[in-house]
Simulated assay, not measured.
Amino acid sequence: CGYGTITRRFFIQGGCSDKAPEWEVEQVIHVEPACEVRLSMFDLPSDIGTKTEALCVLSEEMVYDVPASLAGSATLLPHLEGALCNAVAIGHSDKVSRILDASGMYKV
């Protein structure tokens, strides 16, 4: 999520003789995002289906690759395109589970 630490170590020798001084110098760089990404920065698709009124999909293959035309997609608000201090990439991965005692039904 843009947070991390980079540690660099430098081994320095002050000459070519056996008695030349040696140093080990460490540089620690802390990395964090310049601005925080929030959900309010995006147009989000409406929720579809509920626990009590499930969304029915006819094909098992479609369950594993729900098309954006059905599920919708998230987009960055137009006025923020090119204006953010960090790059934004949007992707998704669906987790699919079979519903016990319900042949051919899946929870996505």
Rank of each mutant, 00 (worst) to 15 (best):
R38E: 00
G72C: 12
K51P: 03
V57Q: 13
C56S: 07
G91R: 01
R8K: 12
L55T: 13
P33M: 06
P67R: 07
V63F: 03
G91N: 14
G49E: 04
G91Y: 01
Q27V: 06
K19Q: 06
D18I: 13
V57M: 14
L70E: 10
G72A: 14
L76Q: 03
F42T: 04
D47N: 12
A20R: 03
H79I: 12
E32D: 10
E61D: 08
K107W: 07
K51L: 12
G104V: 05
Y64Q: 11
G15E: 08
H30L: 10
G91P: 10
S93Q: 03
V96D: 01
P67F: 05
I6R: 15
E32F: 10
S46M: 00
P45I: 04
A102E: 09
A54Y: 00
N86F: 06
H79F: 13
R9M: 05
Q27L: 01
D101I: 05
F11C: 12
L55A: 02
S59V: 05
S17I: 03
R38C: 00
Q27I: 02
F42M: 06
A34Q: 05
A102F: 12
A34R: 04
A87M: 15
A71I: 06
V96S: 05
L77M: 15
A89D: 14
H92L: 09
E36F: 04
L80G: 13
I99M: 03
C35D: 06
S103F: 11
E60G: 08
S69W: 09
D94R: 10
A102Q: 15
D94Y: 11
I12Q: 12
G15N: 07
T50F: 02
E61C: 00
W23P: 09
E60C: 06
F42K: 10
C56E: 08
G4V: 02
D94E: 07
V28P: 00
A54C: 00
E32N: 02
E24M: 13
E24Y: 07
T52E: 15
M62R: 12
L55H: 11
L84V: 10
S46N: 01
Y106F: 14
F42S: 03
E60F: 09
E36H: 10
M62L: 08
S17V: 00
R38N: 00
S93E: 03
S69N: 13
E22K: 15
Y3L: 14
C16N: 10
S103I: 09
A34D: 02
Q27P: 01
S93H: 09
V37Q: 14
V63H: 14
L77I: 03
F10T: 02
D43S: 08
G14V: 03
G2E: 13
A71P: 02
N86R: 04
H30T: 05
R98I: 00
I12V: 15
R98C: 00
S69H: 04
V31H: 11
K95W: 03
F10G: 01
M41R: 01
L44H: 06
T52L: 14
V37K: 14
C85E: 13
D18A: 14
E53N: 07
H92S: 14
M41T: 07
Y106D: 08
E24V: 15
T50M: 01
A68V: 04
T5C: 09
N86Q: 04
V66S: 11
M105Q: 07
C35A: 09
Y64C: 11
L58R: 04
S40V: 02
H30Y: 05
L58M: 08
